[in-house]
Structure formats: structure tokens, C-alpha cells
Amino acid sequence: MTADTEQPLAPVSPLVRYAGRFAAVTRASGGAVRLAELPLLAQLSVRLDAKGPAAEAVRFALGLALPVEPDTVAFSDELAALWLGPDEWLVVGRPGSAAGLEERLRAAVAGEHAAVTDVSGQRTTVLVGGARARDLLAHGCPLDLHPRAFGPGRCAQTTLARAGVLLAGRDEHRPGYWLLTRSSFAGYVADWLLDAATEYVADATSIT
């Protein structure tokens, strides 16, 4: 096979083998706990001076202002921008949009002291929803996840069962959380979620 006939390898998400078990927990808990991987989301690390011209250029290019309030998320129809630090954000978009996003962001900050990096492979995302989502995460997360303290539009980098995770509250219409875990920790975090969820499942043997 010559180089120009080779097909690029299709990307495989870290939790592809957990889809069945996530669905089984969702079913067996009657939807009290909903687990699903949101695979292969586009993820761009953006670092720049929040007070400088690059921040304004990014706002113009994305139609979305990078949030300056710590631990908050800004949403547009297509994108979410998560605060990671006073000069660092994670811009998340639909699967397959990373290259285009990277190009737009790089063009926007060209000539400024800024960095745009495609980190889509660094983390995968697990949707943790359902009425018991907060109870489930509380088994292993030190944060106060009560909506009063951590509602929609909040995010935090913290630990879940000692693994570093990035947690974001979904909007009011879709209660629950996005849990972003590093790819190399994803299997561990998924196993932990499945184990912690057994208490919300009528018949635990149905999910193993």
C-alpha cells in the first residue's frame, strides 16, 4: 500500500468499551443515574492575557467571550469556554470541529502573546445526569455540588476518587454535569462511576 492510498486511522474514544455498561446503569436505575460518554469532542487550550487585545479578538472570532470569573463556563450555540486559570481556557466544540476551531483561533490571536493548542485527545467527556447525579459524584468529589454552590455555568478542576477531573454544570434545561477526565484516567474513572452507581440500581447484577 502506498502512502497516498492509506486511509487515516479513525479516532477511537477512550471509553468506547464502556458504552454498554453506561447504558445498562442508565436503564437499571430507571434514569436516576444517566451515564454516557460524549466522545471525541473538539477541545482547544487557549492561553492569553484576559485584559489584552487577544481576548477581544477571540471574542470577535468565536462570538463568545472567554469568561474571566474563575470557575465559570460561557456557552454559545456551538461552543463552551471553560475557565481553567486567569490566563487559560478550554474551548469545547462538536466532534470534528477541532481543526477549523484551531485555525480560527490562531488567526484571531496572530501576532499577540497567546497560545492555541488542539488538546482534543487529552480528555474525554462523560455526561453524568439524572436525579441522583449529584449524589453519585458526591461519593468521590470534595466539592460542594449543591446547585446553590455549583449550578449551571459553573466549572471546576478538582478530584473525583483522587483522579484529577474537570467538572462543569450543564444548563438549567438539562440538569447534570459534564465530567472531563484525562484519557489515561478515563477507564479508572468510568469503573469508579459504575461501582458508585450500584447503590442507585435495583438489581446490581444487571449491570455487571
Binding site: 474563575p70 470557575d71 466539592l143 471546576a156 478538582t158 478530584t159
Partner: peptide, 11 residues
């Protein structure tokens, strides 16, 4: 000073 009160294990 940015994230508010957090567990010592995060530091």
C-alpha cells in the same frame, strides 16, 4: 485566591 476554598489535597 482564584478558585475559593478547596481541599488541601488539591495543593
Amino acid at each position: 485566591p482564584w478558585c475559593g476554598p478547596r481541599d488541601e489535597a488539591e495543593f
